[in-house]
Write a protein that binds this DNA or RNA. Structure first.
Lengths: 128, 128
DNA sequence: CGAGTATATTGACAAGCATCAATATATATG
DNA sequence: CATATATATTGATGCTTGTCAATATACTCG
């Protein structure tokens, strides 16, 4: 899926541009991937709205109350909740016939901190 | 593109579930949309890597130095830089034959603060 | 058990996106 | 002006994703 003509771009031509620059990788590739997945889960208007709703409540929220806030079909909301579940951004709990979702702040905190870290110049990103 | 059977979900059936819940919209729809666009710009491994690279440098970075870090063609990197430009996450500046990019921390800061705000229970999101 | 209800899952489809090859644009240099 | 180089743009292609309709699952209640 990626090309292999990398060596064609590492000639001395770009030595004219900048000194050879070795930028240390910020965190492992695995970390990058999981951050991308988390950000992608948030990068949808419906899901971000759901997350906002959950963030405003301390108590879990019933799926039917989430669904009623959108002009979208129930399977669509269920799909979005699954995406949020998959990246562990939400907790869920079945109570009888209903399912209750709540925000998993422990999963949100690292991403918020990560973006904060990008604001500081030259700040190393946790590589663990 | 959206269904219109919303009223079928607002019957008294869900009164059995939870008390009628009015969740105030967190910020305008426009704010939500622009946040989604910013998050989507970050939610790609190549672009997040670029942003990380820029965040570690105070000086702008030449496109050729960015391109050399990836096994991707030059047009692909150029495309990703355009996405970052479009949401104003980066500044760019032409110097002779080369183009230099730098992180626009002023555009990153609101999103970082927004995610921080989601961590606090019941915290109202800026609606301006 | 049977009927009803809330939620999840499956399958299909259209729109969006990441990528590449080819080309265009702009700048430097001889 | 002609050539070379760095970057951007265009167009095509395959993969991903958001959505819906239909169906399945799980739970409650009579």
């Amino acid at each position: 899926m990626q090309n292999n003509n990398n060596e064609s771009r590492t000639t001395e031509s770009e030595a004219d541009c900048c000194p050879v620059l070795t930028i240390r990788p910020a965190g492992s590739d695995l970390r990058l991937q999981s951050r991308v997945k988390l950000l992608a889960a948030l990068a949808d208007p419906t899901r971000l709205h759901i997350v906002e709703m959950l963030s405003q409540l301390q108590e879990p929220l019933c799926v039917c109350d989430i669904t009623s806030q959108f002009d979208l079909g129930q399977p669509t909301i269920s799909h979005h909740l699954k995406v949020l579940r998959d990246v562990k951004l939400v907790h869920w709990e079945k109570r009888g016939l209903w399912v209750y979702y709540s925000l998993n702040r422990a999963a949100l905190e690292p991403i918020a901190g990560y973006l904060d870290g990008l604001l500081a110049i030259g700040q190393a990103v946790s590589s663990v």
